[in-house]
Amino acid sequence: MLDTSAVHAGALVGIGLRGPHLVELPRRRPALDFVEVHAENYMDFGPAFDRLMDVRRDYPVSLHGVGLSLGSADGLDARHLARFRDLIARIDPILVSEHLAWCIAGGVYLNDLLPLPYTEEALDLVARNVARAQEALGRRLLVENPSRYLNFAHSPIPEAEFLGALVVRTGCAILCDINNIVVSAHNVGEDASAYLEKLPRAAVQEIHLAGHSVQSIDGRTILIDDHGSPVSDEVWRLYARARQTFGAVPSLIERDRNLPPLDELLAEADRARVDHALAA
């Protein structure tokens, strides 16, 4: 039997906190090192924000953006940056992260994390946007590798190298989403382990763990990053390698669809914690 209290000194382990658990968490105060929320869900500064402030009394909070659209050729939305900055000022998060993706074009918000071709043009653009976001938010951003369902015909820079160049140019950090690596590697025909090794190690400051679903299209399987099921075995296996590669960085269990009772998420968080201790 493992004494988990003794191994607690390892990596921080948290869960993605969603609306249905906002009230339950501060009431129960389970052992978690931090929680992470989607920043855009709290920008009304209304009752949901007030409940998050209750959580904030007991747990450090990480803010995970989904709408900055760091990859937008249009540039960043100044109004959204201002709301994000206000939220950071009030939450004082331990981490602030976003995605290597775009979701806004021509002023329309497409509510999905859309893929970029990895070209010099895109690198210049994303570096400019990340630098502007970091300046406006007053924080070092963690940029997350996206899940992908397609390849561009012209995309000469491997994604991990693209992220590495972004780190060099902007001083940003990396959020390594293990599930996204597994999903993308399967969908666009890459090697997940090799991808992990190519990321700039020292820049990886957080790990995401989540589940995916499997669909069949044209007789081929596609993995869908729907955060709708427990962390898969394949993701746990790659997580073991990631811990050896990146060391004790904060790890997060994410679930957005089919949200289970809080205890199920806590059990997955415990597994990440124990796995971490065994790897140490």
Partner: peptide
Amino acid sequence: WLRDDGIAATARIDIY
């Protein structure tokens, strides 16, 4: 400007 890779590009766009 999309690669087919065994699944039609249109089907890949459909996922998004």
